[in-house]
């Protein structure tokens, strides 16, 4: 038997739940087919979510899943240009014609789909993004001149979490696009995902007892994002998310962290997401999305 997991036509952090529900139990016992034929668009969160699923299956020594590529030539070309198929080919058995990636990525991509395996990769990610982020964040989104540095700081801290806490590698991608449905403005989006142990297991030995029966994926996310705790006993730890929250607040942005079966968000006025979504379909590791909207004309 092969279990078919349909990739949502419009694949973002919301429709990710439909994708996660498709897997059933983890690790899946059946052969898996990830069917992206009907895909029309995927956010960086969606793209690296698919790679995370493939990575989790490989790490669980599961059978190599199948992947049918999108029918739309435009979608295929875009996914190729951001480097998705290059990495997907290592994790999935690809079916369908994959176009060659262009030498340079599209202009709205701040960072292609990039693996994060070690601290050295965090350096590379920050170096890559620093050249283009100022032009886009200040010039296009209307953030203050120093925004590129703050944006890179958030990116650096989010990527370091993979190396320090996940126990495995992960993925990052950064893109600018128009957020029509919820905001009607351009946004810069950082998406970071790993297939590691997740927040609950990472914090369990040091913080579970404090929460008693409340301990679970949601409580672990709350401890990390709201209370700033870390599994390390060093009192200076846990400041990365605190700093990111400061930037989010300043730019009226959103941060959302999904781990295991819960998702915790700091929700700005322009979004209608719930702060804590619990009892979601299980998905391995942790997925972080940071969304920074173009500033409204009067605040520029």
């Amino acid at each position: 038997m092969t279990r078919v997991i349909e990739v949502p036509a419009h694949f973002d952090d919301r429709s990710f739940e439909q994708f996660a529900a498709g897997f059933g139990a983890w690790p899946a016992e059946e052969k898996l087919l990830v069917d992206a034929r009907a895909a029309q668009w995927a956010s960086p969160y969606g793209l690296i979510g698919m790679l995370t699923a493939g990575q989790a299956i490989a790490e669980a020594k599961g059978e190599r899943p199948l992947f049918t590529v999108p029918i739309s030539d435009d979608v295929k070309r875009y996914w190729a240009r951001v480097g998705f198929f290059r990495h997907a080919a290592e994790l999935f058995e690809l079916h369908g014609r994959v176009p060659k990636a262009a030498a340079t990525g599209p202009s709205d991509v701040l960072l292609d789909v990039t693996p994060v395996r070690a601290m050295e990769d965090v350096h590379q990610v920050v170096e890559k993004i620093s050249d283009v982020s100022s032009r886009i964040l200040h010039g296009e989104l209307g953030l203050e001149r120093g925004a590129a540095g703050r944006f890179s700081m958030a990116l650096s801290e989010a990527c370091q979490n993979i190396v320090e806490h996940a126990g495995t590698s992960g993925w990052v991608a950064v893109q600018v696009y128009t957020f029509r449905r919820r905001l009607g403005r351009r946004v810069a989006v950082i998406a970071v995902s790993d297939s590691g142990v997740g927040f609950r297991r990472s914090l369990e030995s040091t913080h579970a007892s404090r929460f008693g029966e409340r301990w679970g994926d949601g409580a672990a996310l709350e401890a990390a994002l709201i209370q700033g705790v870390s599994r390390f006993r060093d009192p200076g730890r846990g400041q990365g998310f605190k700093g990111i929250k400061g930037f989010i607040d300043r730019w009226k942005g959103k941060i959302s962290i999904r781990s295991g079966s819960a998702r915790l968000s700091i929700v700005p006025a322009w979004d209608d997401d719930v702060p804590l979504a619990d009892h979601l379909p299980f998905f391995p590791g942790a997925q972080v999305q940071i969304t920074i909207p173009a500033q409204e004309a009067e605040s520029r």
Binding site: G149, S152, M153, S156, Q239
Partner: peptide, 15 residues
């Protein structure tokens, strides 16, 4: 220095 993240600020200046 172009960028100083929170981790480095902690490791260098605070420590």
């Amino acid at each position: 220095i172009e960028l100083l993240d929170f981790s480095c600020a902690e490791e260098i200046v605070a420590k």
